[in-house]
Write a protein that binds this DNA or RNA. Structure first.
Length: 496
RNA sequence: GUCCCCAUCGUCUAGUCCGGCCCAGGACACAGGGUUUUCAUCCCUGGUACGCGGGUUCGAAUCCCGCUGGGGACGCCA
């Protein structure tokens, strides 16, 4: 297998040999939704590639045919696209090292397995699953402390051309594997702890520790970053690299993200999939920002734009300790992104909030009005869903909240509202500052405070007692619409 | 049982590599207060942490050892 073409080395005279552009990958198995912990892994890899002008590869590890589904593949791809974690090679974009689905690479694994068998580093094992299961059960029965390991029954057995077999790796009996983890430092594991693991199933489909290595080798992966739960797989994988005569890539394991309770983060702890967070109305960068700060830090900085992150991210600042997911902190980080126009420009905000507006029945909001409305709801909406809830009444006739109407739109308040409307008619240039100025002088002349009209006017204009500032609401609504709503409210107050 | 990893406020973390600037800083959360036309935003104040025990040192959150606690793995799952 040809080693992969990487970026050309800097020309000869350069005294400092620069490391070649990294090739990293995210390799999910399409067996469900895209877990938020998986996103963090994808993000760190993506960041590393983008920072160093490297290549980010998406590889689908679909060898578990029982659980893999095409739907799930689609969900993962959609989620990554939504998060804008774009891949340079992989499904839908192709690339020179494909295919990027493991089930389409079966012949490659077969080749590599044969090579290992030829070198005596792997062998065919004819033990049946039933036999092995029986042995496992027996050892379990012998005592709770006896964990079963494959005893190497077929290590020196002769080949049976007519019997089904799996291919096992021949693990060394002595020695150690040591590797330098970028985040955890030197990790040494004795080979005596390894066993002859299965590389290829009886149907020729590879298992994780073999498939991943073959793919990483043939795809030219230079750095593998994955969850700490995979750290135990690294020594056996390194053994395979060595048996194959390839230099292993660098490894950077990531501490795990647990549920607030300290358990493994799963569905029963609430939203864990990207699609759920998306549906809840959190912006992609909010999700990414929370995730990146989980296990990584850049001094005291909490909030990052995508560009900022690419510039500042480094595995050197990744911590080793596992942590617990905090929904409140998550919501706050997401809110910060929604609040700040420098992080979420108004047009982007508009695009993101539209589907949520649509869900409230506003399918084609007036663009100019939407752009005017967004700044007024930014700081009171912690999610896009809340944003839609906080502004849908700008786009349709308000429905009066019953209690609000009873309290603020009464025959007693009607005259004041009429006065209020009359003064607004005189405002020629309909802008917030002008509106405010006009109202202020009217208030002064009448010896009133804004308090005295604000709530009735608010209910008249929005239907509710809670809304952005009165002047802002008027400005968003526009002259005609404001006057019309006031008219309607005055009418219904006098009637009641 | 075997192997691997980890350990600073309730939570995410800075500080740990190169010991003194840390009687430990930031953020979220929590409690109290302020600004305010509603709701928010915003601002101020407060409490709470270096798991324990030994070393080394003039001096340790920082270095070493042990303990305890937590996590991961031991599949024809990934």
């Amino acid at each position: 297998m040809a080693s992969s073409p990487v970026a050309p080395a800097p020309s000869g005279s350069a005294s400092i040999a620069r490391r070649a552009a990294p090739r990293v990958r995210f390799a999910p198995s399409p067996t469900g939704y895209l877990h938020i912990g998986g996103v963090r892994t994808a993000l760190f890899n993506w960041l590393w590639a983008r920072k160093h002008g490297g290549t980010f590869i998406l590889r689908i590890e679909d060898t578990d045919q029982e659980r893999s589904t095409d739907d799930s593949r689609k969900v993962i791809v959609d989620a990554l696209r939504w998060l804008e974690l774009d891949w340079d090679e992989g499904p839908e974009v192709g690339g020179p090292h494909g295919p990027y689905f493991q089930m389409q690479r079966l012949s490659i694994y077969g080749e590599f397995a044969d090579r290992l068998i030829g070198r005596g580093r792997a062998y065919r094992c004819y033990c049946t699953k039933e036999e092995l299961d029986a042995q496992r059960a027996a050892s379990k029965a012998r005592g709770p402390k006896g964990m079963w390991r494959y005893p190497g029954t077929c290590r020196d057995r002769k080949d049976h051309p007519d019997r089904p077999f799996v291919v096992r790796f021949r693990a060394p009996d002595a020695g150690v594997v040591t590797y330098e983890d970028i985040v955890f430092g030197a990790v040494t594991t004795p080979n005596s702890a390894q066993q002859d693991f299965v590389m290829l199933r009886s149907d020729g489909v590879p298992l994780y520790n073999f498939g991943a290595v073959v793919d990483d080798v043939t795809m030219g992966i230079t750095l593998v970053s994955r969850g700490r739960d995979h750290m135990v797989n690294t020594p056996p994988q390194i053994l395979v690299y060595e048996a194959l005569d390839y230099a292993p890539p660098r490894f950077a394991h990531l501490p795990m993200m647990l549920a607030p309770s300290g358990e493994k983060l799963s569905k029963r702890h609430g939203a864990v999939s990207v699609s759920e967070y998306r549906a809840l109305g959190y912006p992609p960068m909010g999700v990414l920002n929370y995730l990146v700060r989980f296990g990584w830090s850049h001094g005291d900085q909490e909030i990052f734009s995508r560009e900022d992150l690419i510039q500042k991210f480094d595995f050197a600042q990744v911590g080793k300790a596992d942590g617990k997911f905090d929904p409140k902190k998550f919501a706050d980080v997401a809110f910060e992104h929604l609040k700040r126009p420098d992080l979420t420009p108004v047009r982007r905000y508009a695009n993101m909030v539209r589907p949520f507006l649509d869900a409230t029945g506003i399918s084609d909001p007036d663009e100019a009005k939407l752009l005017r409305a967004i700044p007024t709801v930014r700081e009171r909406a912690r999610s896009l869903r809340e944003a839609a809830e906080a502004m849908h009444y700008f786009f349709r006739k308000p429905v009066f909240d019953e209690k609000a109407q009873k309290k603020f739109l009464t025959p007693a308040t009607a005259p004041r509202l009429s006065d209020f409307r009359a003064l607004l008619v005189c405002v020629t240039l309909w802008e917030e500052a002008n509106i405010e100025a006009a109202i202020s002088s009217w208030l002064a002349s009448k010896n009133l405070a804004i308090k005295d009209v604000a709530q009735p006017a608010r209910v008249a204009l929005t239907g509710r007692t809670v809304s952005p500032g009165l002047y802002e609401v008027l400005a968003v609504l526009g002259r005609e619409e404001s006057l019309a709503r006031l008219d309607h409210a005055i009418e219904s107050s006098s009637v009641s």
